Amino acid sequence: MTERVATTPGLFPLPDWAKETLSELKGHQKGDLLSGEEGREIVETYDEVRSELIDDQVDAGLDRIVEGQSRWDDMIAHPLTIADGVETGGIVRYYDNNNFYRDPQVRTEPSPSGDVADDLAAATADAPDDSDIQAVLPGPYSLADLATNETSHDEEAFLDTIATFLAEEVDALGEHETLFLLEPSFAENPPGDGEDAQASAAIDTVADASDAEVVVHTYWGAIPEKPYAHLLDADIDAVGIDLVAADREDSVYNVQEYGATDSIALGVVDGQNTLVETPETIGERVEWFESQVPVDDFETTYVTSNTELFYLPENKYKAKLNALVAGVEVLS
Protein backbone atom coordinates (compact mmCIF):
# COMPACT_ATOMS: atom_id res chain seq x y z
CA MET A 1 0.00 0.00 0.00
CA THR A 2 1.49 3.29 -1.09
CA GLU A 3 1.96 5.93 1.59
CA ARG A 4 0.95 9.35 0.26
CA VAL A 5 2.70 12.35 1.74
CA ALA A 6 1.64 15.99 1.31
CA THR A 7 4.69 18.21 1.08
CA THR A 8 6.34 21.06 -0.86
CA PRO A 9 9.73 21.95 -2.34
CA GLY A 10 9.93 24.88 0.09
CA LEU A 11 10.88 28.46 -0.83
CA PHE A 12 7.68 30.15 0.28
CA PRO A 13 6.74 33.78 -0.42
CA LEU A 14 7.39 36.33 2.29
CA PRO A 15 4.29 37.42 4.22
CA ASP A 16 3.11 40.84 3.10
CA TRP A 17 4.04 42.51 6.40
CA ALA A 18 7.58 41.11 6.20
CA LYS A 19 8.21 42.47 2.69
CA GLU A 20 7.64 46.01 3.92
CA THR A 21 9.57 45.54 7.16
CA LEU A 22 12.59 43.92 5.53
CA SER A 23 12.69 46.46 2.71
CA GLU A 24 12.89 49.25 5.25
CA LEU A 25 15.45 47.51 7.44
CA LYS A 26 17.71 46.51 4.56
CA GLY A 27 17.53 50.02 3.17
CA HIS A 28 19.09 51.30 6.38
CA GLN A 29 21.75 48.61 6.67
CA LYS A 30 25.03 49.11 4.86
CA GLY A 31 27.24 46.27 3.66
CA ASP A 32 26.65 42.99 1.93
CA LEU A 33 23.48 41.37 3.20
CA LEU A 34 24.31 38.21 1.27
CA SER A 35 27.22 37.53 3.61
CA GLY A 36 24.76 36.18 6.16
CA GLU A 37 25.74 38.97 8.56
CA GLU A 38 22.35 40.63 8.77
CA GLY A 39 21.64 43.10 11.53
CA ARG A 40 19.83 42.02 14.69
CA GLU A 41 16.44 43.41 13.60
CA ILE A 42 16.67 41.66 10.24
CA VAL A 43 17.55 38.36 11.93
CA GLU A 44 14.62 38.74 14.31
CA THR A 45 12.28 39.49 11.43
CA TYR A 46 13.34 36.37 9.57
CA ASP A 47 12.90 34.36 12.76
CA GLU A 48 9.35 35.65 13.03
CA VAL A 49 8.71 34.84 9.36
CA ARG A 50 10.02 31.30 9.84
CA SER A 51 7.67 30.70 12.74
CA GLU A 52 4.75 32.01 10.69
CA LEU A 53 5.59 29.80 7.70
CA ILE A 54 5.79 26.75 9.94
CA ASP A 55 2.44 27.65 11.47
CA ASP A 56 1.00 27.85 7.96
CA GLN A 57 2.13 24.30 7.24
CA VAL A 58 0.97 22.93 10.57
CA ASP A 59 -2.43 24.60 10.18
CA ALA A 60 -2.78 23.11 6.70
CA GLY A 61 -1.83 19.66 7.98
CA LEU A 62 1.19 18.97 5.74
CA ASP A 63 2.99 15.69 6.38
CA ARG A 64 6.44 17.25 6.01
CA ILE A 65 7.47 20.61 7.45
CA VAL A 66 10.10 22.72 5.67
CA GLU A 67 11.96 25.74 7.00
CA GLY A 68 10.44 27.93 4.29
CA GLN A 69 13.71 29.41 2.98
CA SER A 70 12.53 32.99 3.43
CA ARG A 71 16.14 34.23 3.47
CA TRP A 72 16.92 32.70 0.08
CA ASP A 73 16.85 35.96 -1.87
CA ASP A 74 18.81 34.21 -4.62
CA MET A 75 16.47 31.25 -4.75
CA ILE A 76 18.22 27.90 -5.10
CA ALA A 77 21.61 29.58 -5.58
CA HIS A 78 21.47 30.88 -1.99
CA PRO A 79 23.64 28.31 -0.21
CA LEU A 80 26.45 29.07 -2.66
CA THR A 81 26.10 32.87 -2.76
CA ILE A 82 26.94 33.12 0.96
CA ALA A 83 29.82 30.61 0.93
CA ASP A 84 33.44 31.60 1.38
CA GLY A 85 35.26 31.55 -1.93
CA VAL A 86 32.21 32.86 -3.81
CA GLU A 87 31.43 36.39 -4.98
CA THR A 88 27.89 37.46 -5.78
CA GLY A 89 27.81 38.97 -9.23
CA GLY A 90 25.21 41.08 -10.96
CA ILE A 91 21.56 40.37 -11.56
CA VAL A 92 20.88 37.51 -13.97
CA ARG A 93 17.85 35.55 -15.07
CA TYR A 94 17.51 31.92 -14.05
CA TYR A 95 15.36 29.79 -16.30
CA ASP A 96 12.25 31.16 -18.01
CA ASN A 97 10.17 32.36 -15.09
CA ASN A 98 10.55 36.16 -15.22
CA ASN A 99 12.54 36.27 -12.00
CA PHE A 100 16.02 37.67 -11.65
CA TYR A 101 18.65 36.76 -9.08
CA ARG A 102 22.32 37.23 -8.36
CA ASP A 103 25.05 35.23 -10.05
CA PRO A 104 27.29 33.17 -7.70
CA GLN A 105 30.80 33.47 -9.07
CA VAL A 106 32.93 30.71 -7.63
CA ARG A 107 36.53 31.93 -7.33
CA THR A 108 38.01 29.17 -5.15
CA GLU A 109 36.83 25.99 -3.44
CA PRO A 110 33.60 27.06 -1.69
CA SER A 111 33.44 26.48 2.05
CA PRO A 112 30.12 25.45 3.63
CA SER A 113 28.68 28.13 5.89
CA GLY A 114 26.33 25.95 7.95
CA ASP A 115 23.67 28.57 7.25
CA VAL A 116 21.10 26.03 6.04
CA ALA A 117 21.79 23.78 9.02
CA ASP A 118 21.24 26.69 11.43
CA ASP A 119 17.94 27.59 9.78
CA LEU A 120 16.80 23.96 9.82
CA ALA A 121 17.65 23.71 13.53
CA ALA A 122 15.58 26.83 14.20
CA ALA A 123 12.69 25.37 12.21
CA THR A 124 12.89 22.11 14.13
CA ALA A 125 12.71 24.05 17.39
CA ASP A 126 9.70 26.03 16.16
CA ALA A 127 7.77 23.04 14.83
CA PRO A 128 5.60 20.78 17.03
CA ASP A 129 7.60 17.97 18.65
CA ASP A 130 5.99 15.24 16.52
CA SER A 131 6.70 16.99 13.21
CA ASP A 132 8.51 15.25 10.35
CA ILE A 133 11.09 17.76 9.15
CA GLN A 134 12.11 18.07 5.51
CA ALA A 135 15.37 19.71 4.48
CA VAL A 136 15.65 21.55 1.15
CA LEU A 137 18.80 22.18 -0.88
CA PRO A 138 19.62 22.76 -4.53
CA GLY A 139 20.86 19.73 -6.38
CA PRO A 140 24.50 19.79 -7.48
CA TYR A 141 23.81 19.78 -11.22
CA SER A 142 21.44 22.77 -11.06
CA LEU A 143 23.69 24.67 -8.66
CA ALA A 144 26.73 24.14 -10.88
CA ASP A 145 24.61 25.14 -13.89
CA LEU A 146 23.56 28.42 -12.24
CA ALA A 147 27.03 29.31 -10.96
CA THR A 148 29.87 30.91 -12.86
CA ASN A 149 33.01 28.79 -12.70
CA GLU A 150 36.00 31.05 -12.17
CA THR A 151 38.16 28.38 -10.58
CA SER A 152 40.99 26.56 -12.33
CA HIS A 153 38.81 23.44 -12.61
CA ASP A 154 37.24 22.22 -15.83
CA GLU A 155 33.46 21.75 -15.86
CA GLU A 156 33.64 18.11 -14.79
CA ALA A 157 35.82 18.89 -11.78
CA PHE A 158 33.66 21.94 -11.00
CA LEU A 159 30.55 19.75 -10.75
CA ASP A 160 32.41 17.48 -8.33
CA THR A 161 33.42 20.56 -6.31
CA ILE A 162 29.82 21.70 -6.01
CA ALA A 163 28.69 18.18 -5.06
CA THR A 164 31.33 18.01 -2.31
CA PHE A 165 30.28 21.44 -1.06
CA LEU A 166 26.63 20.37 -0.84
CA ALA A 167 27.51 17.05 0.80
CA GLU A 168 29.29 18.99 3.54
CA GLU A 169 26.24 21.22 3.95
CA VAL A 170 24.05 18.11 4.25
CA ASP A 171 26.44 16.54 6.75
CA ALA A 172 25.95 19.56 9.02
CA LEU A 173 22.15 19.24 9.02
CA GLY A 174 20.35 18.04 12.09
CA GLU A 175 17.86 15.19 12.01
CA HIS A 176 15.45 15.29 9.07
CA GLU A 177 12.94 12.83 7.66
CA THR A 178 13.27 13.85 4.02
CA LEU A 179 15.76 15.77 1.88
CA PHE A 180 14.49 17.49 -1.26
CA LEU A 181 17.22 18.27 -3.79
CA LEU A 182 15.87 20.78 -6.31
CA GLU A 183 17.07 20.01 -9.85
CA PRO A 184 15.15 22.13 -12.39
CA SER A 185 18.18 22.21 -14.70
CA PHE A 186 17.68 18.52 -15.44
CA ALA A 187 14.65 19.62 -17.47
CA GLU A 188 15.62 23.17 -18.45
CA ASN A 189 19.26 22.60 -19.41
CA PRO A 190 19.73 18.83 -19.29
CA PRO A 191 23.18 17.23 -19.19
CA GLY A 192 24.51 15.87 -22.45
CA ASP A 193 26.27 12.62 -23.23
CA GLY A 194 28.86 11.82 -20.61
CA GLU A 195 27.75 14.71 -18.42
CA ASP A 196 24.55 12.83 -17.56
CA ALA A 197 26.51 10.08 -15.80
CA GLN A 198 28.61 12.71 -13.99
CA ALA A 199 25.48 14.55 -12.85
CA SER A 200 24.07 11.31 -11.45
CA ALA A 201 27.32 10.62 -9.62
CA ALA A 202 27.28 14.16 -8.19
CA ILE A 203 23.75 13.64 -6.86
CA ASP A 204 24.89 10.35 -5.39
CA THR A 205 27.64 12.19 -3.50
CA VAL A 206 25.12 14.55 -1.91
CA ALA A 207 22.54 11.85 -1.19
CA ASP A 208 25.11 9.68 0.56
CA ALA A 209 25.65 12.45 3.12
CA SER A 210 22.05 12.15 4.39
CA ASP A 211 20.41 9.36 6.34
CA ALA A 212 17.00 10.65 5.28
CA GLU A 213 14.78 9.78 2.32
CA VAL A 214 16.25 11.69 -0.62
CA VAL A 215 13.99 13.12 -3.33
CA VAL A 216 15.52 14.64 -6.47
CA HIS A 217 12.79 17.02 -7.56
CA THR A 218 12.87 18.05 -11.22
CA TYR A 219 10.47 20.53 -12.80
CA TRP A 220 9.59 22.90 -15.65
CA GLY A 221 9.37 19.96 -18.01
CA ALA A 222 10.37 16.35 -18.51
CA ILE A 223 13.91 15.01 -18.21
CA PRO A 224 15.25 13.62 -21.49
CA GLU A 225 15.59 9.85 -21.65
CA LYS A 226 19.32 9.37 -21.09
CA PRO A 227 19.69 11.77 -18.16
CA TYR A 228 16.62 10.16 -16.59
CA ALA A 229 18.08 6.66 -17.00
CA HIS A 230 21.37 7.77 -15.45
CA LEU A 231 19.56 9.53 -12.60
CA LEU A 232 18.14 6.18 -11.56
CA ASP A 233 21.71 4.99 -10.96
CA ALA A 234 22.07 7.42 -8.06
CA ASP A 235 21.35 6.13 -4.56
CA ILE A 236 18.15 8.13 -4.13
CA ASP A 237 14.69 7.22 -2.93
CA ALA A 238 12.49 9.23 -5.31
CA VAL A 239 12.53 11.29 -8.48
CA GLY A 240 10.23 14.28 -8.65
CA ILE A 241 8.16 14.58 -11.83
CA ASP A 242 6.36 17.73 -12.98
CA LEU A 243 2.83 16.72 -13.99
CA VAL A 244 1.76 20.32 -14.53
CA ALA A 245 4.16 20.77 -17.45
CA ALA A 246 2.76 20.26 -20.92
CA ASP A 247 5.13 17.38 -21.70
CA ARG A 248 4.10 15.15 -18.82
CA GLU A 249 3.60 12.25 -21.25
CA ASP A 250 7.37 12.27 -21.81
CA SER A 251 7.87 11.76 -18.08
CA VAL A 252 5.46 8.86 -18.11
CA TYR A 253 7.33 7.36 -21.07
CA ASN A 254 10.58 7.52 -19.11
CA VAL A 255 9.05 5.47 -16.29
CA GLN A 256 7.48 3.02 -18.72
CA GLU A 257 10.77 2.54 -20.56
CA TYR A 258 13.40 2.76 -17.80
CA GLY A 259 11.55 2.09 -14.56
CA ALA A 260 11.43 4.24 -11.47
CA THR A 261 12.81 4.70 -7.99
CA ASP A 262 11.08 2.91 -5.10
CA SER A 263 9.19 6.09 -4.30
CA ILE A 264 8.01 8.98 -6.46
CA ALA A 265 7.30 12.70 -6.07
CA LEU A 266 4.55 14.16 -8.23
CA GLY A 267 4.26 17.88 -8.88
CA VAL A 268 0.49 18.13 -9.19
CA VAL A 269 -0.10 21.70 -7.99
CA ASP A 270 1.07 24.61 -10.13
CA GLY A 271 3.52 26.66 -8.11
CA GLN A 272 3.35 29.63 -10.49
CA ASN A 273 -0.39 29.90 -11.22
CA THR A 274 -2.80 31.55 -8.83
CA LEU A 275 -5.61 29.20 -9.83
CA VAL A 276 -6.03 26.87 -6.85
CA GLU A 277 -6.54 23.23 -7.79
CA THR A 278 -9.48 21.34 -6.31
CA PRO A 279 -8.77 18.22 -4.23
CA GLU A 280 -10.43 16.20 -6.99
CA THR A 281 -8.06 17.63 -9.62
CA ILE A 282 -5.05 16.78 -7.47
CA GLY A 283 -6.33 13.26 -6.88
CA GLU A 284 -7.04 12.77 -10.58
CA ARG A 285 -3.50 13.83 -11.53
CA VAL A 286 -1.96 11.35 -9.10
CA GLU A 287 -4.27 8.54 -10.21
CA TRP A 288 -3.67 9.35 -13.89
CA PHE A 289 0.06 8.95 -13.42
CA GLU A 290 -0.30 5.73 -11.46
CA SER A 291 -2.56 4.29 -14.15
CA GLN A 292 0.03 4.99 -16.84
CA VAL A 293 3.12 3.39 -15.29
CA PRO A 294 3.99 -0.29 -14.80
CA VAL A 295 4.46 0.00 -11.03
CA ASP A 296 2.10 -1.84 -8.70
CA ASP A 297 2.86 0.28 -5.67
CA PHE A 298 5.39 2.96 -4.82
CA GLU A 299 6.60 2.88 -1.24
CA THR A 300 5.80 6.59 -0.91
CA THR A 301 4.19 9.10 -3.26
CA TYR A 302 5.14 12.65 -2.34
CA VAL A 303 2.25 14.87 -3.45
CA THR A 304 3.70 18.32 -3.99
CA SER A 305 3.69 21.50 -6.02
CA ASN A 306 5.68 21.29 -9.22
CA THR A 307 7.81 24.33 -8.38
CA GLU A 308 8.57 26.45 -5.37
CA LEU A 309 5.59 28.47 -4.13
CA PHE A 310 7.68 31.65 -3.95
CA TYR A 311 6.00 33.08 -7.05
CA LEU A 312 2.50 33.24 -5.52
CA PRO A 313 0.70 35.90 -3.48
CA GLU A 314 0.53 35.08 0.21
CA ASN A 315 -3.15 34.08 0.18
CA LYS A 316 -2.72 31.80 -2.83
CA TYR A 317 0.34 30.12 -1.32
CA LYS A 318 -1.68 29.25 1.77
CA ALA A 319 -4.55 28.00 -0.36
CA LYS A 320 -2.16 25.71 -2.25
CA LEU A 321 -0.90 24.21 1.02
CA ASN A 322 -4.45 23.37 2.00
CA ALA A 323 -5.19 22.01 -1.47
CA LEU A 324 -2.26 19.57 -1.27
CA VAL A 325 -3.49 18.17 2.02
CA ALA A 326 -7.09 17.92 0.76
CA GLY A 327 -5.86 16.19 -2.39
CA VAL A 328 -4.10 13.50 -0.35
CA GLU A 329 -7.22 13.04 1.73
CA VAL A 330 -9.26 12.44 -1.43
CA LEU A 331 -6.82 9.66 -2.35
CA SER A 332 -6.99 7.92 1.02
Score class of each variant (00 low, 15 high):
Phe12Asn: 01
Pro13Cys: 01
Pro13Ser: 08
Gly31Phe: 07
Glu41Cys: 13
Glu44Pro: 03
Thr45Lys: 00
Val49Lys: 05
Val49Asn: 03
Arg50Trp: 07
Ser51Ile: 11
Glu52Ala: 14
Glu52Lys: 15
Asp55His: 09
Val58Tyr: 02
Ala60Cys: 13
Ala60Gln: 09
Gly61Asn: 13
Gly61Glu: 06
Asp63Met: 01
Ile65Gly: 02
Ser70Asp: 07
Arg71Lys: 09
Trp72Pro: 05
Trp72Tyr: 14
Asp73Glu: 03
Ile76Val: 04
Ile82Ser: 13
Gly85Ala: 00
Glu87Asp: 05
Thr88Pro: 05
Gly89Cys: 05
Tyr95Asn: 04
Asn97Trp: 10
Asn98Gln: 12
Asn99Ser: 14
Asn99Phe: 15
Pro104Val: 03
Gln105Ile: 15
Val106His: 03
Val106Asn: 03
Arg107Gly: 05
Ser113Asp: 05
Val116Lys: 03
Val116Leu: 02
Ala121Thr: 08
Ala123Asp: 10
Ala123His: 07
Thr124Ile: 11
Ala125Asp: 15
Asp126Pro: 09
Ala127Lys: 08
Asp130Asn: 15
Asp132Tyr: 04
Ile133Asn: 12
Ala135His: 11
Val136Lys: 06
Leu137Ala: 00
Pro138Leu: 08
Tyr141Arg: 06
Tyr141Ile: 04
Ser142Val: 04
Ala144Ser: 14
Asp145Trp: 12
Asn149Asp: 15
Glu150Gln: 13
Ser152Tyr: 07
Asp154Leu: 10
Asp154Ser: 08
Ala157Pro: 08
Phe158Gly: 04
Phe158Ser: 13
Leu159His: 12
Thr164Tyr: 13
Leu166Cys: 09
Ala167Tyr: 10
Glu168Tyr: 08
Ala172Pro: 01
Leu173Cys: 14
Gly174Ala: 12
Leu181Trp: 05
Pro184Trp: 00
Phe186Ile: 06
Ala187Phe: 12
Asn189Gln: 06
Asn189Ala: 07
Gly194Asp: 07
Gly194Pro: 01
Glu195Ile: 02
Asp196Lys: 13
Ile203Asp: 04
Asp204Pro: 02
Val206Pro: 09
Val206Asp: 11
Asp208Val: 12
Ala209Val: 02
Ser210Met: 10
Ser210Val: 11
Glu213Ile: 05
Val215Tyr: 11
Val215His: 07
Tyr219Ala: 05
Trp220Gln: 12
Gly221Val: 10
Gly221Lys: 02
Glu225Pro: 01
Glu225Trp: 09
Pro227Val: 10
His230Gln: 15
Asp233Gln: 09
Asp242Tyr: 13
Glu249Val: 03
Glu249Phe: 11
Asp250Gly: 00
Val252Ala: 13
Val252Cys: 03
Val255Thr: 07
Gln256Arg: 15
Gly259Leu: 05
Ala260Glu: 08
Leu266Arg: 04
Val268Ser: 06
Val269Lys: 10
Asn273Tyr: 02
Leu275Pro: 08
Val276Lys: 00
Glu277Thr: 07
Gly283Gln: 13
Glu287Ile: 11
Ser291Trp: 08
Gln292Ser: 11
Gln292Cys: 06
Pro294Trp: 06
Phe298Trp: 14
Thr300Tyr: 01
Phe310Glu: 05
Pro313Cys: 14
Glu314Gln: 14
Glu314Asn: 07
Leu321Phe: 09
Val325Asn: 01
Val328Phe: 01
Leu331Pro: 08
